[in-house]
């Protein structure tokens, strides 16, 4: 399955820089995938997935240097680690549309005998995934380990990771944040999805995160912000800026403000759709707001 041709979305030409319009079309299609996947099995996490759609589309189609095919060690390419594994729908959609596995496999999301488990895992050998995540707060440590391996291998490629903001309540993150700065892990770009929402409500009500930027800076990180993480151009520009800041002795953190549920109006600005599937009528509304662009799976 790994042998499937890469970059089917863009005519198989990886060298060609996709136009912004093409990426926007891809983002719209990914949003359709997300709500359709979650609707089909009446479970899953659409809110954070929709909010991070631009990030994933940009990362996998514009930012990361990727080899063809998939091997676990990933030497000679950039790697990505998803720490907040519950937003698997956006991850699976983008991986499939980037050619890591057949698009039709999105039909198996959360079903028995599927490689597309509720939360991403290596256990069934899904190409593109290098670590299991779901139990929160573990991804940054793993990303640091992979970054250290890159340095040992004299591999100049970069490690990217994504973390939910609520997830920063897990203490292990701060062990990792301390390590990355203290040990100068400067080939790491950790992005925090600052949507301000978690299962029980607003992050600032559940357990105030306060000034995340200042906290990372106090630990010794180079911190930058993407103020509108649902503006594709802004995300691309932000990620490029972050990349330019690597290799300078500090890990790089992007605080990326997004709207949970972005692109589906009734899912926006609320934590209600963190982990809830739309019903049939709601699906129709969501799809109408995101017209088919590249073809449904």
């Amino acid at each position: 399955m790994c042998k499937q041709k890469f970059a089917t979305t863009f005519g198989g030409n990886l060298k060609k820089m996709p136009q912004l319009k093409e990426l926007q079309d891809l983002a719209t299609q990914v949003r359709r995938d997300i709500v359709r996947m979650v609707h089909k099995v009446n479970s899953g996490h659409p809110g954070g997935s929709l909010g991070c759609t631009e990030f994933f589309v940009a990362l996998y189609n514009e930012i990361m240097e990727l080899k063809e095919g998939f091997d676990m060690n990933g030497i000679g390419e950039d790697l990505f680690f998803l720490s907040n594994g519950h937003i698997s729908p956006v991850y699976y959609s983008v991986l499939a549309r980037r050619g890591y596995f057949p698009l039709e496999e999105l039909n198996t999301f959360r079903l028995i005998d599927s490689r597309l488990q509720g939360h991403p895992t290596t256990h069934e050998g899904l190409p593109g995934v290098r670590i299991a995540s779901g139990s929160l707060g573990q991804g940054m440590s793993v990303a640091i380990g992979a970054a250290l391996a890159k340095k040992l291998n004299n591999d100049p490629h970069i490690i990217y990771s994504l973390h939910g903001d609520g997830e920063l309540q897990e203490g292990q993150n701060w062990e990792a944040i301390m390590f990355a700065a203290g040990k100068k892990v400067d080939n790491l770009i950790a992005t925090v999805d600052r949507n301000g929402q978690q299962i029980d409500g607003a992050t600032e009500d559940v357990m105030p995160l306060g000034d995340v930027r200042t906290k990372f800076e106090a630990f010794g990180w180079d911190v930058m912000e993407i103020e509108n993480g649902n503006d594709l151009e802004a995300v691309i520009a932000g990620l490029k800026e972050a990349k330019s800041r690597t290799g300078k002795g500090k890990p790089v953190c992007i605080i990326m403000t997004t709207v949970m549920g972005h692109g589906v109006d009734f899912m926006m600005h609320t934590h209600a759709w963190h982990g809830k599937a739309p019903n049939d009528e709601q699906l129709e509304v969501a799809l109408a707001q995101n017209p088919e662009t590249l073809g449904d799976y």
């Binding site: 790697l79 680690f81 380990g145 250290l148 391996a149």
Partner: peptide, 8 residues
């Protein structure tokens, strides 16, 4: 976690 990452 770092150990897990180093295997990659």
């Amino acid at each position: 976690g770092i150990a897990a990452g180093l295997t990659i």
